[in-house]
Design a protein around this nucleic acid. Structure first.
Lengths: 214, 214
DNA sequence: GTCTATAGCTGGATAGAC
DNA sequence: GTCTATCCAGCTATAGAC
């Protein structure tokens, strides 16, 4: 019976690999055709299979977008929570934004799927979405490291970082007209939001934010 | 001959009206079907005509998007440059952001067309685009009123205002979780960017920005 | 699971009568 | 300018043989 189990595991693994390679192909396609231009015909062709075969791995086109979203979200979480090799809290903050901008600008299609919700009727499933929440929590931690725990301040943080990326991508793609403002922005933010004295320990500074981006 | 001329003008006016009513119908449709969901069949039906008739007013679907863009852009310019009934420079600034948020949140489809460029192969023509530039210049003026003329600061301004709108629409549609942060944001911005003393007159503070949003 | 073949639909755009 | 009728391309998804 252990043999049967092993065989099952083997099957599962193979299936996962096949699914992954379809998702690979999907990303290749959307990166140079645009997110909305994804068609199952092209996808099958790029993946080296046929359309019906795609349906034996995903039950619909939305399921494919969901798998793409899941991968993007976990890449995002991984990219943002990777250890920061600096000790100064302010530098950690700056580095976090830098990573965020880097992540978004290096693959605009991924940015669109993850943050802009531009696909017609698509909503990610909670499972696919989960890693994004982790990334937001990491941002909260980086702010807390600087003594910033007010949820309003976290909202201000997500607002300007998001806007920075947005302007960089929309109005100066490939350049650094906005990304070079990061340091200035962080100074402005800390000057306004950081308590002058190390704050007395508070009971439950836990914030209940619903937003997504770091 | 003056009679012939008048007749021509009449014809032109009638044609403009017909075009306008098609654009009306297009906006009605996209507002509750989504921007990408616009189809010429539905559009014709909503406008009370047939598909070929649409083509006698617009040479392609993109031309319709362009007309929609033109209207949105001029509404935007009008909304942002309407007289500000306050005298305090800071209040003008706050009021400007308020108007911007209001404009974007009151019609998300319009916001998407104007700022998010979410329609596949569509790029607005320069004519359609022109009013947006006017709105950006107005924002620059409002900042100058506060002694802020550094182009970098204008870029920071567009970044955070954009991000504020973006977060408000994406993560709290219909609410005020981000829009209520405007005043706080403006304080932060002025504290960091406003010169402490009225600045000596500079030679050519003229900025050369390419961005779009106020 | 994988294929060939195709159903079934919707899209943008056009021909040609009136 | 406006219609009826239609073309043709693209799409998602499925039936059925192997």
């Amino acid at each position: 019976m252990s043999k049967a189990l092993a065989s099952n595991e083997w099957r599962e693994a193979k299936r996962r690999l096949a699914r992954d390679s379809i998702v690979d192909a999907a990303w290749v396609l959307v990166r140079d055709e645009g997110l909305a231009a994804l068609s199952l015909r092209d996808l099958a062709k790029t993946a080296g299979i046929t359309t019906p075969t795609v349906y034996s791995y995903f039950e619909s086109k939305h399921a494919i977008y969901d798998a793409m979203f899941a991968r993007a979200a976990s890449e995002f979480a991984e990219h943002m929570t990777r250890p920061y090799d600096v000790e100064d809290p302010r530098t950690v903050l700056v580095e976090g934004v830098r990573r965020f901008v880097e992540f978004c600008t290096e693959d605009v299609a991924r940015y669109q799927l993850l943050f802009l919700r531009t696909v017609p009727g698509f909503e990610p499933t909670p499972d696919a979405f989960a890693p994004s929440v982790r990334a937001l929590e990491a941002a909260r931690d980086r702010l807390a490291l600087n003594g910033i725990t007010d949820p309003r301040h976290l909202d201000m943080w997500t607002a300007w970082t998001t806007g920075l990326v947005d302007q960089q991508i929309s109005n100066d793609p490939g350049g650094d007209r906005w990304s070079r403002l990061i340091d200035d922005f962080v100074s402005m933010f800390l000057a306004h939001c950081k308590p002058k004295r190390p704050p007395a320990k508070r009971a439950k500074p836990k914030a209940t934010t619903r937003g997504v981006r770091p």
